[in-house]
């Protein structure tokens, strides 16, 4: 079974900071972490991709596109 599962792409693992059923902040903080990481280390810094993959795994696409628009318009409710 593990060999079959290894064919699956990567998904966001269990994170001990978010042990509960409510995963809203897991998604929300990963999104912020990615953009802060990029701002700090530049767009080519490979380790930032971890946060991107995490929030892509977790956040509904509708949320991500809304937040992207808000960041572009400068109305995103958190400092990156």
């Amino acid at each position: 079974m593990s060999s079959a599962e290894s064919q699956l792409p990567w998904t966001a693992p269990f994170d001990a900071r978010y042990p509960n059923m409510n995963q809203t902040k897991h998604c929300y903080k990963s999104y912020i972490d990615f953009h802060r990481c990029q701002k700090l280390r530049g767009e080519d810094y490979e380790p930032c991709q971890y946060f991107k993959k995490t929030y892509t795994s977790l956040c509904p696409n509708e949320w991500v596109s809304k937040w992207d628009t808000q960041r572009a318009e400068g109305t995103y409710p958190c400092k990156i």
Binding site: T24, K25, Y28, K29, W63, P77, C78, K79
Partner: peptide, 13 residues
Amino acid sequence: PTSEIGAQWPPAS
């Protein structure tokens, strides 16, 4: 607080 208000209280800005 929801993510719409920056997941903080008082809300962002």
